[in-house]
C-alpha cells in the first residue's frame, strides 16, 4: 500500500493541529520511533517526545501538567519488561479521573510498543492525532502558565 500524505481535509478546514505530548520509554517505544526514522516511515508531526528510561517514570503529575500547559492529548509509549505491570493500574485510574474532569478518553492513551514495532507506532500516532483533532482543542479554562498572574496582591 502506498504511503498516504497525512493532511486530512478536516485539518485544512479548521486549521486545528492538536498538540500531543508523548512520553516514550528509552528501551522500547523510543527505539521504535528511531526505527521509524531510519525506515523513513512518515507520520503526523503533532507529537513532541519526552524521553524517560521506562514508562514507569511517567508520574501522573506529568500527564496533568501536560494538559494544564496546553496539550490536547498525552500519549505514553511503554513496554512490559518482565514485571512492570503497575503502569496499567495507574493509567486506568488516571483515565477515570481525567474523564470526571471532562477530558475525553481519546486524549490520554497508553500504547505498548516494542522496539521493533515502528509501523505500529505510526498507526498509533496517526490514529490518536485524528481522534484528538475530531475532539477539537482541549482549551482548559485556567491554563497553568497563567497561574502566576492570578495573585493581584
Amino acid at each position: 500500500m502506498p504511503e498516504k500524505e497525512l493532511e486530512s481535509p478536516r485539518a485544512v478546514q479548521n486549521g486545528f493541529e492538536p498538540k500531543i505530548v508523548a512520553f516514550f520509554c528509552n528501551w522500547c517505544t523510543y527505539l521504535a520511533a528511531d526505527l521509524a526514522g531510519t525506515s523513513r516511515i512518515k507520520y503526523a508531526p503533532n507529537i513532541r517526545v519526552i524521553r524517560t528510561m521506562c514508562s514507569g517514570r511517567v508520574d501522573p503529575q506529568f500527564v496533568l501538567e501536560a494538559f494544564a500547559r496546553g496539550a490536547d492529548g498525552v500519549l505514553i509509549g511503554g513496554c512490559h519488561p518482565g514485571d512492570c505491570h503497575y503502569q496499567e493500574g495507574n493509567y486506568k485510574t488516571l483515565r477515570r479521573v481525567l474523564g470526571e474532569m471532562g477530558i475525553e478518553d481519546e486524549r490520554f492513551r497508553l500504547e505498548w510498543i516494542s522496539a521493533s514495532e515502528a509501523e505500529r507506532l505510526k498507526v498509533a500516532v496517526n490514529d490518536m492525532v485524528e481522534k484528538v483533532r475530531a475532539l477539537g482543542p482541549l482549551r482548559l479554562e485556567i491554563k497553568a502558565e497563567h497561574f502566576p498572574e492570578e495573585v493581584a496582591a
Binding site: L64, A68, E100, M101, G102, L140, E141, I142
Partner: peptide
C-alpha cells in the same frame, strides 16, 4: 489547587 483546577466547562 490541583493542576487541572476544575472540570472542563
Amino acid at each position: 489547587s490541583s493542576l487541572l483546577r476544575r472540570r472542563k466547562l
